[in-house]
Structures are given as C-alpha cells and as structure tokens.
C-alpha cells in the first residue's frame, strides 16, 4: 500500500514540480533587466532535462567507466586488466564474434526483408492483410518469441517422435536425419538470428512502407514512361528516394543487434558458443559477480555504438539544414 502511495505521489508530483519550476523560472527571468534574460532563458528551460540526463545517464556512465578499471569487488585498481580480459578471454572472443555476426546478418535480413515485403505488398490488393501478418510478431514479447522458436528448432534423438516443427516437417523427406539446430556452432547462431529477424522485420517493413507511400506515384509513372523496367525503377528511383529511411532502419537495427540479450538467454542460455557481449556482461555481473569485467564489457559496447549515434546525429543535422 505504501508503494502505491509513493507511485501516485511520483506520478502527480513530478509534473507539478516541473510546472512549478517553469513558472518560477519564467517569473525570475521576466524580472531580470532586458539584456540578461536573452541568454538565460534557454538554459533555464534546458536545466531540468540536463539534470535528469546527468543523474540517469552521465553519472552511471562515468561510474561504469570507473568500475571498469577496478577489480571484481571494486576495491583496488587493476589498470587495463578488465579490457585485456574482454579482448583475450576465449569465451569473450566468441561473444565478440557472435556480436559481429548479429550485426551483419540481423541488420541485413531485417532491413532487406522489410524492404522486400514493403515493396512487394505495395502492389497487391490484400496489402493490409499481408502487412499485418508480417507485423504481427512485433506484438509478441521477445521472450515469448524466443520460446516459440525454441519449439520450432526443438530436437529429439532419431527414432523418437520429433516435436520440433522444423525437424518434424523435414522428417517427411525420406532419409532425413533430425538435426540439433541450436546445439552445433557456429550455425546455431544463425538460427537465433532467424528468431530475432522474425520479430523485427515487421518493424522495418512498417517504416519503409510509410516512406514508400510518401513517394508520389507520378514520379514512378514518369520513370516508366521514360523507359525504366520495374527493376531499374526500383534501383534508380525508389531505392534512392528511400535512402534516408533505409539508413535510419539500419542504425536502429544495428543498435538492437549489439544489445540483444533475451533471445540468447531464452533459447540457449548462452551455451554452445551462442553467447554475445550483452549475455557475457549479464553473466559476469550476476553469476560471477565480477563488476570490473561487466563494466569493461559495457564500456566496449558503448564505444561500439558511438559511431552509429554520430552517424544518426549527422543525418538529423543534414535534414534540418535542407528543410
């Protein structure tokens, strides 16, 4: 009961606090002599945002950075040892390799398939139905989706009834030996990626499809009259015009690929060489209780994502300037 009250107080209190702050700040600014208020006002409005970013983002980041140079229990400095671990430990190297695999395959498949579905459904009559079908997995939680795919890839020894969908279906082919899809590396990683692709393709399809609708049909018709085949039309008109949306989809997918955790956790629990960095971090923190290792992994992930963020920021600025 106490918690409920606390929650209610937070929900009502924070907006009230902010409104009170704005009223006070604006009142104070308007009382200042004319010249000063010009540069002070933007900072007063920014201040709450800056405050929250500092407390919830910058402070933990700096904290993690500090922990990454300390030992497992965060008491003594160990220099770069944690980072050396990240880049030399055998299991960590596999995790890094898997992350690379995810980065390339997951991004390529989600964006590629999303684009394909968006373009193809754009020309059929049952477009809405087809797109709903592809989008549907988005409504399933990542964990649930992983459970579903675990059943799909399930394996029983030859001679016993195959309960896994894939093995059951393939067993209809004479001479087929059931396979342990999730157990044999490195291909098992691909099957994990398939599950994640199943969920995220719908997302890519939706944003690409929206962009596709934004291309005036006359522009495509003009290209047809100008002599373009459907193939040329796609590569020379449609795709370049979708360019910025494709880039956005790619950056979002890259970020997701780098931080995937649930699929690995549920489907293989990081066994059989399917662990990735996010999973390794979890393991270091909650199983090994090694804060130093976990923090170093976090910092490496952060640095890996920085170029993607920089690219996104640049795009936003370019879009602003062409507007």
């Amino acid at each position: 009961m106490d918690r409920l009250w606390l929650a209610a107080a937070v929900v009502a209190g924070i907006p009230l606090l902010l409104v009170g702050y704005i009223t006070l700040a604006e009142g104070a600014v308007s009382r200042l002599p004319g010249r000063g208020s010009g540069w002070i006002r933007p900072w007063l409005w920014l201040a709450p945002g800056l405050f929250f970013i500092t407390v919830f983002l910058i402070y933990p980041t700096v904290g993690t950075l500090r922990l990454s140079f300390l030992g497992p229990d965060s008491t003594r400095p160990v220099g770069l040892a944690n980072y050396v671990f990240v880049f030399t430990d055998k299991s960590m190297l596999v995790a890094l390799r898997n992350n690379g695999l995810w980065l390339v395959l997951f991004t390529l498949l989600t964006v590629g398939l999303g684009l394909l579905v968006a373009v193809l459904t754009d020309r059929v009559r049952y477009e809405a139905a087809a797109k709903s079908l592809v989008f549907l997995p988005m409504a399933v939680s990542f964990t649930a989706a992983s459970v579903i795919w675990k059943f799909m890839f399930d394996y029983r020894p030859p001679g016993t009834p195959q309960t896994g969908t894939l093995n059951a279906v393939l067993s209809l082919i004479p001479g087929f030996q059931p396979r342990a899809w999730l157990i044999n590396p490195p291909l098992n990683n691909v099957f994990l990626i398939v599950a994640a692709v199943w969920v995220w393709t719908g997302f890519c399809m939706v944003i690409l499809s929206a962009a596709l609708k934004g291309i005036p049909s006359e522009v495509q018709e003009a290209a047809r009259v100008d002599g373009a085949t459907e193939w040329q039309l796609f590569w020379r008109i449609t795709f370049p015009l979708l360019g910025s949306t494709v880039a956005v989809a790619i950056t979002i997918m890259v970020v997701f690929a780098l931080k995937t955790f649930d699929v690995v956790y549920v489907m293989t629990n990081g066994n059989y060489d399917t662990q990735n960095t996010a999973f390794a971090q979890y393991e270091q923190l909650f199983v090994n209780h090694d804060f130093g290792h976990a923090a170093a992994i976090g910092v490496v992930l952060l640095i890996a994502i920085l170029p993607v963020l920089a690219f996104n920021l640049r795009r936003f600025q370019q879009q602003e300037s062409t507007r």
Binding site: E221, I237, L241
Partner: peptide, 20 residues
C-alpha cells in the same frame, strides 16, 4: 505494350520530376 516500349513522353500535371 508497356509504357516503356511505347516511345511516348509525358508531361505530368504536377511535373513529377525525380527529386533526388
């Protein structure tokens, strides 16, 4: 015959220039 093989050129009401 598809449009591309009709050897016609069309000027559209809203120009329909290729924006990129």
């Amino acid at each position: 015959v598809p449009p591309k093989d009709r050897d016609i050129a069309m000027v559209f009401q809203n120009y329909a220039l290729y924006p990129h």
